[in-house]
């Protein structure tokens, strides 16, 4: 099940847009943190595009919290964009919508 998670990083604009495609659980989360942690630690604003993330459980949420804390510590920011219904539901079920900045669209400031 190698195709459970695919991550793309677009660093062409001031903000880094990270595309997260697939499912986030305890099996796939290490790959997300492995890729995204250096990006947020750079202090640049990061947008996680969750538009094609079909599943996220508490392991995924833990990773998101960790990334959020790392971004803040580096003086940067982390925005969650376009979460799907399952992802939005787990976020609100855990009250993390009060922690995260969530956007309905990926901010288009590059143009």
């Amino acid at each position: 099940m190698a195709d459970l998670l695919a991550i793309t990083v677009d660093e062409r604009a001031a903000e880094v847009v990270v595309g997260v495609v697939g499912q986030l659980d305890f099996g796939t989360t290490p790959r997300l943190t492995g890729v995204v942690t250096p990006v947020v630690e750079s202090g640049r604003p990061v947008v996680l595009d969750l538009g094609r993330l079909s599943f996220c459980d508490s392991s995924g949420l833990s990773a998101l919290v960790r990334l959020h804390k790392a971004a803040t510590a580096a003086g940067g920011s982390l925005v969650l964009a376009r979460p799907g219904p399952q992802v939005a539901a787990t976020i609100s079920a855990t009250a993390l919508d009060r922690l995260f900045t969530i956007e309905a669209e990926v901010p288009d400031r590059s143009r």
């Binding site: 459980d57 392991s59 833990s62 919290v65 804390k69 787990t90 079920a93 855990t94």
Partner: peptide, 15 residues
């Protein structure tokens, strides 16, 4: 709010 762990059963509870 910013705990990284222990959210699993809360999710079960609410789902």
């Amino acid at each position: 709010l910013d705990d990284e762990q222990h959210r699993g059963l809360h999710i079960v509870k609410s789902f």
